[in-house]
Design a protein around this nucleic acid. Sequence first.
RNA 1: AACUCCGUGGUGUAACGGUAGCACAACAGGUUUUGGUCCUGUUUGUCAAGGUUCGAAUCCUUGCGGAGUUGCCA
Length: 561
Amino acid sequence: MSDEPAVENARKDFIREIIDEDLASGKHEGTVTRFPPEPNGYLHIGHAKSICLNFGIAQEYGGRCHLRFDDTNPTKEDTEYVDSIKEDVRWLGFDWGDNLYFASDYFEQIYEWAVHLIKEGKAYVDDQNAEQIREARGNLQEPGTDSPFRDRSVEENLDLFQRMKDGEFGDGEKVLRARIDMAHANMNLRDPVLYRIAHAHHHRTGDAWCIYPMYDFAHGQSDALEHITHSLCTLEFEHHRPLYDWFLDNLPVPSRPRQIEFSRLNLNYTVMSKRKLLQLVQENHVSGWDDPRMPTISGIRRRGYPAEAIRDFCKTVGITKFKGTNDIGLLENAVRQVLNKTANRYMAVLDPIKVTVTNYPEDQVEEMEAMINPEDPDAGMRKVPFCRDLYIEREDFMEDAPKKFFRLSVDKEVRFRCAYWLKCNEVIKDESGEVVELLCTYDPETRGGENPPDGRKVKGTIHWVSARHAVDAEVRVYDRLFSDEDPEGGEGSFLDNMNPDSLHLVENAKLEPCLADVGVGECVQFERLGYFAVDPDTTADRKVFNRTVPLRDSWAKKQKK
RNA sequence: AACUCCGUGGUGUAACGGUAGCACAACAGGUUUUGGUCCUGUUUGUCAAGGUUCGAAUCCUUGCGGAGUUGCCA
């Protein structure tokens, strides 16, 4: 309720302003949008922007948003992708209801419209091959030249097109082209191809067709058939709009959609093109489409990013025609913001050093009380066992500590979160000089981590785990996949810019026992470290965690300087 | 000058002729049993030049810069 005025006053992007105008002027009575993926790959965060836009508008305006698969190219498409796309849209929190469509459902109608154009003298069958057509198209400086087949009679065109459909010709032998203007400044209007021959099995229509419409000849008409009011797409389609409109002008379509283009999402340290993502998968640079380092929806889901954070992120990047690059930090910030409110806190040690509390009774174990989430008191409390044998993070101990190091050091005292204050008295090293154990003493007057009565102060609080009760787990610590801000820039392949340390595998992390009960997919905070999600690779006897995103770390930042 | 589109702090995004604001980042401080969270403050911007106007990021002109377009992909 309280955020209603905020929604009301929310600044609208130029597309929503256009919709407002169209509603105000009576041009449309409602708003119908569509999300039109081609089922030839997995959805990525860039698609999320389009999904949030299209479905978001439908929600805000009480309209509807169709999920339509743009499946006009049978050689590249597959039902595997259809299924993953549906799952991803649903996971993002959107619902297309009964409005699930396929461009291939319209093949018959689109074919009839092609015949219509032929009858009007606005389309012709061209016998030229692909190379000849390319050469005759001219270039950006020079006009194209008419095809020698451009002036065939309507009857001949009708006959030839029928025979194309009947399978009399091989792939590439003939195409159907619109008869527009071979000298047009916009290449898309230089007699664009409408239909090509492809003796290929289609994932839905099977072998019913051997001719398939091109995107341009299918998309706008599909929009019109579905009574889409606003057809939102990315900037690359801007100079296709005149063609989009040409078909609507020259065909007896049942409605008049309007195409509006906006800038696609670009993120630094990320590649977004389907081709490159496919390459990463096929060449095994990642473990699959859902590798947690991938910008795919399935990847970021597995990584632990909440859908809400993706939606928030899409809201903050906004919709414009300006082709900019967003900072990946903005996404990570959205993730932290959601997780800070929702993630349960636990303690886990990724790189353990043993700590022995020499003055703590050998046989004693105490159940320390700890908040599950300080940001959400309703989450309640949990119990964490404390005893003489503990682990702490190697990073939290330093022998020659600088003044600003607030953690454990020799003769220094620090708070063990929710437990006691401990002082390190002695360091035990192995032959190579590596620290293997710390001998510490605890102060019984600091139980629960409370301040002692004598008024002593301590600057730091560190996390720990009982060595006797710890649960072992695998933790996959991810970093960005590319070390270069613009992986696709520069001379060589984008693969040259891959971050060699994008995955750091921790085989034997030590977890507090409560963590044994966390289910697959759940994302928790390992205190002082970051957010971690339980990976599906988890088995009955071994948990696997993915690091979703680290906590902000002003100490690390200070150290770098 | 083939055509089309786009230029607001470091990044992204508002301001629709009337105080250039917000988020992220950065920096400084406060709070804190997470060097987290939270709070406060600071730095940094209208591509340029003309014009219209009492008044221009906004309208006009010119220039400059960037992107896209020559698939039987979408």
